[in-house]
Structure formats: structure tokens, C-alpha cells
């Protein structure tokens, strides 16, 4: 179950009383009625977002009738669902409809391959995904654009570099207690998008399979995507990272507040994604904001034009 309790209480200046109503919602598949795990729930004007757990349940406290905001529900392979908080009042189940994806089938004779957006990972100096004094990180996903010479190529692998520190985990067994030094634990999802020919940004999903990184953590993750058989129908495609804003990835960042003249602690979700050390001729990073609109991600411009994401293709 996921709660938005603390944030909404602060935002709408509603005092938290023991009697306050908790509105519980179940996100399910419209046909099967089964819970949809890892659904992104975004309160748009409040700029709050969380990811549900496997049960697809989330809770919003307070009197929804009086709230002046809207919520967007997003789950991969499902249509985007938008509704006002007032309209949610009285509901307990939200049904999402699956999208029918007409995916391109693969040719059989791919002879050559190449690696796009290659870089030296030891030179990565910048990372995206943290609130800073300069700007809040208000993005649900970041996508790296790739251009290829002809359509119909197959995406065979993706490499993602992210920030990860060695930390000490205290493990308490029934009989002993010991420390283990490991890299920070993180989970996230990878999306492959076609290009939206109108905006030039990410368009529809090119895979109906969920690609979730949840294996042993590392600073560089290398995914073999051959089994997903992802064919790029145009000459442009995007590889995106979706943040799973859940308990597992929850952390904090200290940000200097100029008005308060002190550092304040803000919520932060891992991972933070590396910025390629190679500056390109144009910006190739797009961000999905809380309104679920894709727009160019310019925070590190002019030097940060690409994410530290490589793509291996076959043609």
C-alpha cells in the first residue's frame, strides 16, 4: 500500500486528526480485474508522485470533494488515466485499459551491430535525479534519444550508468550481527519509445514487456534485450529510465533554502542517472513531467546533452 498522507496534509493545510478519512483506491486491469503493480500515481499541481507496490493500492487522506487538483495514473501498456480528485470521491477502484500495441516483427538476418552513444564511464561527472538549489527534479522519466541511419533495426542491448556509492549494511541474523559493504540498492524501469513525429520527443512504447532492473546493484547495468525483440520502426528511438518512487528507493537530499537561509531535507528517489561526458551538437535528453508531457531536459546544458546510456543495435 502506498500513502500520500504526509504530503497532501502539508499542501492543503489540513490538520491531521485521528478521525480524518482515508480514501483507499485499488488500481486494476479493466478486463481481468487483477491489480496492476508499480502504477505511477501523480498529483499534478502538488507535484507529488509515488509508485504503487504489487497490490496496486494507494491511499489519499482528506476530503476529496474539496480538493482542487487532479491525479494521473500511468502503468506501462495501459492508457493514461486522468481524473480530478473531486471525481475520485466515492470511488474505490480505478480500472485501466490496456493499449493494443501493433509492434513491428523482426527480420531474421541481422548481420552487423554497433554501439550508439558510447562514452568513457570513468569520465562521468554529473548526475540527473536530485533536487538542487538551482532546480527541483520534477520528472517521472528521463529519455535518451538515439538516431539511426535506417528504420527496421533491432535493439539488442542497453547500458545505463548511474550513481551508486558503497555503503555499509548492518545485517542482523538470529545468531549474529555483521556488516556488509555493498553498493546502494536501487530498482528502476527501462522503456523503449518510438518517436512522436509531431513533437520530436518520445512516443509510444515499442515493447509490451516490462523491463525492470532489480538484480544485484551496480554502477553500470548492461541489459541484453534480444529476447524482447524490439524493432525500431523509424530512424529515431528513445531509451528511458522510469523512477519507481517507492519505499525501496526512498532517500533524501539536503537542499539550501534561500528564503529560510538553511538546508532543508527533501525526499529523493534513487537512482541518479549519469550524464555522458561527451558534449553533442544538440540536446538529446527528454523529461516526462508531472503532467505527463515530454519536454527537453535542459538542466545541464550546454555541456550535458546526453544521458550516460548506450544502445547496442543490430542491422
Amino acid at each position: 500500500m502506498k500513502k500520500l498522507l504526509p504530503f497532501l496534509c502539508c499542501l492543503f493545510t489540513i490538520c491531521v486528526h485521528a478521525q480524518q478519512k482515508l480514501n483507499t483506491f485499488h488500481v486494476v486491469d479493466n478486463k481481468t480485474q487483477k491489480p496492476i503493480p508499480a502504477t505511477s500515481i501523480t498529483i499534478v499541481r502538488a507535484k507529488l508522485s509515488i509508485t504503487t507496490e504489487k497490490d496496486g493500492i494507494f491511499v489519499i487522506p482528506g476530503n476529496l470533494e474539496k480538493m482542487r487538483d487532479s491525479v494521473i495514473l500511468y502503468a506501462q501498456n495501459y492508457e493514461l488515466f486522468k481524473i480530478t480528485l473531486a471525481q475520485l470521491n466515492g470511488m474505490d477502484t480505478i480500472r485501466l485499459s490496456k493499449i493494443t500495441n501493433n509492434l513491428v516483427t523482426a527480420r531474421l538476418n541481422y548481420k552487423d551491430d554497433t554501439l550508439l552513444n558510447n562514452y568513457n564511464r570513468s569520465e562521468i561527472a554529473y548526475y540527473a535525479g536530485l533536487n538542487t538549489e538551482t532546480a527541483q527534479f520534477d520528472y517521472l522519466q528521463l529519455a535518451q534519444r538515439f538516431n539511426v541511419q535506417k528504420p527496421g533495426i533491432r535493439l539488442k542491448s542497453v547500458v545505463v550508468n548511474k550513481l551508486s556509492f558503497n555503503v555499509v549494511y548492518s545485517i542482523t541474523d538470529p545468531d549474529s550481527q555483521y556488516d556488509s559493504t555493498e553498493l546502494e540498492h536501487t530498482t528502476y524501469r527501462v522503456h523503449i519509445y518510438d518517436v512522436n513525429t509531431l513533437t520530436g520527443g518520445p512516443g509510444k512504447d515499442l515493447s509490451d514487456k516490462i523491463i525492470e532492473v532489480k538484480i544485484l546493484d551496480s554502477k553500470q547495468s548492461n541489459f541484453n534485450l534480444k529476447k524482447y525483440n524490439i524493432i525500431i520502426p523509424n530512424k529515431t528511438f528513445f531509451v528511458a529510465i522510469e523512477w519507481l518512487r517507492d519505499y525501496y528507493n526512498l532517500g533524501y537530499v539536503m537542499v539550501h533554502d534561500k528564503k529560510l537561509k538553511r538546508n532543508v531535507q527533501q525526499l529523493n528517489y534513487r537512482p541518479t542517472i549519469g550524464i555522458s561526458p561527451i558534449t553533442g551538437k544538440k540536446l538529446n535528453i527528454w523529461g516526462l513531467d508531472y503532467k505527463h508531457n515530454w519536454k527537453p531536459y535542459t538542466y545541464f546544458m550546454p555541456f550535458g546533452t546526453d544521458l550516460a546510456i548506450k544502445a547496442g543495435i543490430e542491422y
Binding site: V168, I171, T172, D173, G251, Y252, V253
Partner: peptide
């Protein structure tokens, strides 16, 4: 430059009954 500070929290109890206490990542820039 991103710096890591962190605070402890309890994440989950493993199948063998052990508790894994992970450090909540707290960063500063």
C-alpha cells in the same frame, strides 16, 4: 559534486529471519 550522507532504517526481514537494515541514502550537493 554529490556527496553521500545517510541514516539507518529497517527495510525487511529476510526469509531466514534475519533483518536487513539499509541506510537511507541522504545526499547533499
Amino acid at each position: 559534486v554529490i556527496k553521500l550522507d545517510y541514516a539507518p532504517k529497517t527495510v525487511k526481514i529476510r526469509k531466514n529471519g534475519s533483518r536487513l537494515t539499509t541506510d537511507e541514502s541522504k545526499y547533499s550537493v
